[in-house]
Design a binder for these strands. Structure first.
Length: 268
DNA sequence: TTTTGCAGGCGTCAATCGAG
DNA sequence: CTCGATTGACGCCTGCAAAA
């Protein structure tokens, strides 16, 4: 069984090499059309570019689309409806992440979005994006957070689903957060870590490192998915370009034959 | 029914790029 | 120079179809 699985671990030609073959094919076909133009001296900068890492698929495809009409561009930002779970309004990169004693992560992103992720849930799926508003009282069991600017005890409160509030204490320059029931002052969960600057014990440092690693892995996971999606799109684009160029090439060859016949008629 | 081979997807690591 | 984004490479898993 081991060797069977080991066999499966070889690189897949489709995923790893196929796009490279297509690129060569496109280049070869294109050369027959524009060989005069492509003949030139490659300067050192160009050579260095070729030898070093290729540009991203987004870049290549966008450049291709500017050259060839009809080639779709890869969007800079994906639209919301594409693969976004219904309970997530935005997926902004969090600027601050806090962990509660119950293991929940609270991420406060740019633009005022609060995301709460549950431990054990799969990253993005466990996130709840909460939009802040500045007016009104939180209805019981509200699914949208209501942001109260300041409460009587000098704290800022974010009301979250489940009849709880996330309370930001106004203590110095380092914010701390607590999850409380809105009607009582007793904390249900107390923040374990507020910011990296406040960490001292080895355990806290280890937890911070683990948290950072988890975040990095989660982001890279999403990035890899997105990269593969772009690559597929890129390969599709190359395939269609190959088809177009092959037809074009065939037409040109036929035209050439016709012109040859006209210019040099047989002398029988 | 079980085995085998293949295709495709996923998560992770590491190298590199590019913006600030 | 730093840090986030991007992507090649690797290993693993799963589903499917053909062969045994």
């Amino acid at each position: 069984m081991w060797w069977h699985q080991h066999n499966l671990c070889f690189r897949h030609p489709v995923e790893e090499d196929y796009s490279g073959d297509l690129e060569k094919k496109v280049a070869t076909i294109a050369e027959t059309d524009e060989s005069a133009e492509s003949e030139g001296v490659i300067d050192s900068h160009k050579r260095r570019e070729i030898l070093s890492r290729r540009p991203s698929y987004r870049k290549i495809l966008n450049e291709l689309s500017s050259d060839v009409p009809g080639v779709p561009k890869i969007e800079e930002e994906k639209s919301e409806e594409e693969g976004t779970p219904p309970n997530i309004a935005t997926m902004a990169v969090p600027t601050s992440i806090y962990q509660t004693s119950t293991g929940q992560y609270i991420a406060i992103a740019q633009g005022g979005t609060i995301q709460i992720s549950n431990p054990g849930s799969d990253g993005v799926q466990g996130l709840q994006a909460l939009t802040m508003t500045n007016s009104g009282a939180p209805p019981p069991g509200a699914t949208i957070v209501q942001y109260a600017a300041q409460s009587a005890d000098g704290t800022q409160q974010f009301f979250v689903p489940g009849s709880q509030v996330v309370v930001q204490a106004a203590t110095g320059d380092m914010p701390t957060y607590q999850i409380r029931a809105p009607t009582t002052a007793l904390p249900q969960g107390v923040v374990m870590a507020a910011s990296p600057g406040s960490l001292h014990s080895p355990q806290q440092l280890a937890e911070e490192a683990t948290r950072k690693r988890e975040l990095r892995l989660m982001k890279n996971r999403e990035a890899a998915k997105e990269c593969r999606r772009r690559k597929k799109e890129y390969v599709k684009c190359l395939e269609s370009r190959v088809a177009v160029l092959e037809v074009q090439n065939k037409k040109l060859i036929e035209e050439l034959e016709t012109l040859k016949d006209i210019c040099s008629p047989k002398t029988d």
